[in-house]
Design a protein around this nucleic acid. Sequence first.
DNA 1: TTGTATGCGTTATCAA
DNA 2: TTGATAACGCATACAA
Lengths: 361, 361
Amino acid sequence: MSSPAPSRSATSASRAATSASRAATSASRAATLGDVASEAGVSLATASRVLNGSRPVAHEYRRRVEEAAERLGYIANLSAQTTARGTSPVVALLVADIADPYFGQLAAGVTRAAESAGLITTIAITDRDAERELSLVRTLRGQRPRGIILATSRDTSVDPSALARELEAATAHGARIVTLGAGVAGSQVVPIDNLAGAEALGTAVAELGYRDAVIIAAREGVRTSDDRIAGFSAGFEAGGGAAPRVVRAGITRDAGYEAAATLLEAGLEPGTLLFGVSDVVAIGALSAVRDAGLVPGDDIAIAGFDDIAAGRDIVPGITTVSVPLEALGAQALEAAISDDWGGAAALPLEVRLRASTPRRA
Amino acid sequence: MSSPAPSRSATSASRAATSASRAATSASRAATLGDVASEAGVSLATASRVLNGSRPVAHEYRRRVEEAAERLGYIANLSAQTTARGTSPVVALLVADIADPYFGQLAAGVTRAAESAGLITTIAITDRDAERELSLVRTLRGQRPRGIILATSRDTSVDPSALARELEAATAHGARIVTLGAGVAGSQVVPIDNLAGAEALGTAVAELGYRDAVIIAAREGVRTSDDRIAGFSAGFEAGGGAAPRVVRAGITRDAGYEAAATLLEAGLEPGTLLFGVSDVVAIGALSAVRDAGLVPGDDIAIAGFDDIAAGRDIVPGITTVSVPLEALGAQALEAAISDDWGGAAALPLEVRLRASTPRRA
DNA sequence: TTGTATGCGTTATCAA
DNA sequence: TTGATAACGCATACAA
């Protein structure tokens, strides 16, 4: 240990020392491409070429640059790269509420696909507020993202022109706009056939013998909600059910709970079906039914939409329509980055009949 | 309509025309600060000063610049700003799995706080893979984020030095590192007192009369899991319970389900308590108990940890320890951006006794 | 108060 | 193949 290092390793030893002292004072400054170049004794251009593999570089130089970069812990400055290249490796994702499992699963799909495409995902939350969405798109536009994925509620009661303008501007920046579900002008859309799915559900529960249904939905204008109302009603009536009554509550678990509780207080015919326009709503409703001392399924039936993972552990199992959230997220990313995205057929949604809607005697 | 425009508005009319044609051909190029400056007839510097309000600018110029920016739909290029300023308005968030409600709630807390601080959140998923985490930190480092928040499992069986080096490098770039829960070298830590919380839980259930418990946990080395095991065991034994057996499964709902199913097949004494180290695990276990034809709570008791929102609708209610996820996320963001973050006391975790652990006769 | 000029870290063009 | 050097879009020190 006290013997001098063999001369062969003298160089690397001194380099290690350099690197160590660098690390010690490293709170100072991050290594730049210039640092790498001079450390390697080559020009800036050559270093750049090695590190992003654009053009051929002699083996020796390549090696020296790579070693220097390694030694310095060099990582390219993304912002500088972006300004120089004029294109950034980020996709922006707008969701209504990331704590909602629906959007969580969606985000997982987007993020996973993005990462495997070497892209970075930026996420923003609209809290279901159209103004907020607008301002967020505006902000995100500053990033010059490769794509913007809108997984937020379309609200038909809000003038879409402001958003459209903003999105058009983003398009001018080279971003590709993708909307999930109900599309928006000038965007590619990854369709979700809420109408057909809800109709199939309506038909299925009518076939089970239900004749009275109340739909717990979002305020009028929320596209997804409205489509599911329309689809369900059509299917339900076609199957012999009465026209469902619609209660405007909201699209959260608590909204579902409150709405159902209120309905129950006002008196609800046993055998009535409560259809929550999303699983979280249905789950809330189910809890309200139980808390009212009734048996969900037997006394009051429940159905939802989405088939979120969290629903698996609810008892009774909730009848719902499965939506392949992660796959849709991946599809959205695909649409956002591929040059020749021919559009996609809506992925099939499947009705899942479970114990929350037993066959009526 | 066919009459000529009054001369007063000629200018603005022609500008409108210009702007319109711009919009028409707008797929071409995004407006830059230079465009705004020349449109307003001022220098680049003046335009810049107006738009980021740094220094005083004459009213007239200010107005012209603002109007020009508005007309052109100008939004500053964030990358260019970042390279020029040397600091970026982004914080990076690393989570194990964004589809997991635990991380979803956490992410919501971080993102909300970030937005209200004018920051953009970048999100990445480690899938609980330490190597992946390392490479993600490396990638994110390229963004020169203001802060990096690690909400991923610390794994004591993995050599932390590589990650530490990477984080140190990020620090050199000016990023502040924040870890949630078990800290990592060189980072600020937003503590989660898993040990104390679990101990309180162990004590509480022992007090309820439980004497036998099995802990369903992650593989050895996952810090959060290990802490909860240790804490629970200590509390349980202190309260008179037998030393709990530990089953290594995983920290997902399915892992909880499988582990519990296996345990039940092998035979489990009635009155045994199953403690899942997180609610998702406990929820899975609860379903397994039910699927085995037993009554969760009465036959086999269940307890979890986290008090995730999705647990509210599970029946029986799951005894757990509440962790203020959103608040912790907000706290983490605070730590990541404030210059004088003095550290924080661990937020109090509270035991919530529910029907899944009835008092034993 | 305004404008000029320089710099930020990269990439890409053009000679050599 | 390599190296100067001019962009990229913006911020800012300095001069006017």
